[in-house]
Design a protein around this nucleic acid. Structure first.
Length: 148
DNA sequence: GTAAGACATATTG
DNA sequence: CAATATGTCTTAC
């Protein structure tokens, strides 16, 4: 499986969302310019492993719970998938797995906060907001988990 | 072993 | 109070 590409429509959608949110709300505190940010995103879509886990985010407009969830999700390594329950437990809210999904739906920074790596415990995909829906989520997981 | 349905459960607006 | 991008358990194939 060499040339596994991601759908252009959703790709642009995600790029637009990150651009818009990071600019208007200054969610990304990392000292990185808009151009470099977009360059990194494009590198990611080309298939390069980009690590977003160290980026400092401005999450003050969100609740304590949401901040914690986003921080934990941000730490999920490239190519790995964790369950909503795992995120809830790691965050210190063992039974808030459903609220985790609620937070993911509100995720302002896809990719930086890799919500596509959060799936159901029983192996199901869970949900996904976007043009292609869960089909795109599966594409993302396959895209990252392709072993050579 | 699998599939569908009820119920529990936390957080948010 | 209602709405979830879940998890677990029960029941019936």
């Amino acid at each position: 499986m060499r040339n596994l590409a991601l759908p252009e429509g959703s790709k642009e959608d995600i790029l637009f969302r990150i651009k818009n949110e990071s600019k208007s709300n200054a969610l990304i505190k990392e000292d990185i310019g808009q151009e470099d940010l977009i360059l990194k995103i494009k590198e990611y879509f080309r298939g390069k492993k980009i690590d977003f886990s160290d980026w400092r985010l401005n999450l003050e407009k969100y609740t304590i719970f949401q901040r914690k969830i986003m921080q934990v999700v941000q730490k999920i390594p490239y190519g790995e998938t964790k369950s909503y329950k795992w995120v809830a437990q790691t965050s210190g809210y063992p039974r808030a797995y459903r609220a985790v999904g609620n937070t993911m739906r509100n995720n302002p920074l896809p990719l930086v906060i890799p919500c596509h790596r959060v799936i159901k415990s029983d192996g199901g995909l869970g949900g996904f907001s976007g043009k292609e829906g869960i089909a795109y989520k599966k594409k993302m997981i396959d895209f990252e988990s392709r072993k050579k």
